[in-house]
Amino acid sequence: MSNLTVKNVSKIYPGHSANDEPVLALDRVSFHVEDHEFCSVLGHSGCGKTTLLMMMAGFEDASEGQIMVDGKPIGKPTWQRSIVFQDYALFPWMTVQENISFGLEMKKIPLADRKEVIQKNIQLVGLSGFENRYPHQLSGGMKQRVSIARALAVDPKVLLMDEPFAALDAQNRALMQEEMGRILASSDITQRKTMIMVTHSIDEAVILSDRIVVLTRRPGRVKANVIVNLPRPRVEESPEFIALKRQIRDLIHDEFEIEA
């Protein structure tokens, strides 16, 4: 339950060798995410979305500018900003239960409370009955659920998600987006975490977000910052939904024209 500010953030990757040009991945990106808000950062492949997310988590330093949570500059990575990785990054030697438990153990939460939190989060993502499976025994969609449950279990202030549904097949992706929408719709707004999701899917962004930050092609700059005021759960066939999608598509038409 925190707000997050990205202020004038640039990222330059130095070249690997002398004749290798440095890469400007992000160019003075600024936006603000309110408490309880679900914010999507929408942008083309290679525009610096992962870079931005890793900087928010604290794994990369900004070359310029600052990222702040509740007005304070962020420091090293911490459970207060937990991540859902694009490739899930589940620990393959741990069962579903143990994966979710890991962060809680690191926080030294007593066993009894731990069990309760694990159970609650397993139910939230709809994985009851799969507690003792290993990741390799799960489908892609189920792995992503575990990864979301694991990140939520440590009770972070901000949840960071890197194209969480991109690796799924179309059917699973739609299902997961719907589930995520359900979780967002049902939970009490004051209970909701501040969430930031990077994605290249307009649909996904419109289904889930309260705010959509659109980035340009590389180097990523903020192209638009759109507030989405549609009621939840969102109805994809509704005229408002379609209109908003078209608005965003038009808005960023030149950035996305290559996409079908």
Binding site: A57, G58, F59, P77, T78, W79, R81, S82, I83, F85, D87, A89, L90, F91, P92, W93, F102, G103, M106, K107, R150, A151, V154
Partner: peptide, 28 residues
């Protein structure tokens, strides 16, 4: 995988925990 270490780190694991509970296990 770098992301496994990053995942552990952002779940609050100390350097010692990362070595014993992640690196050693992953290399097993």
């Amino acid at each position: 995988e770098l992301n496994l270490i990053r995942a552990a780190r952002c779940l609050g694991a100390s350097e010692g925990n990362i070595l014993w509970r992640i690196v050693v296990k992953a290399a097993m």
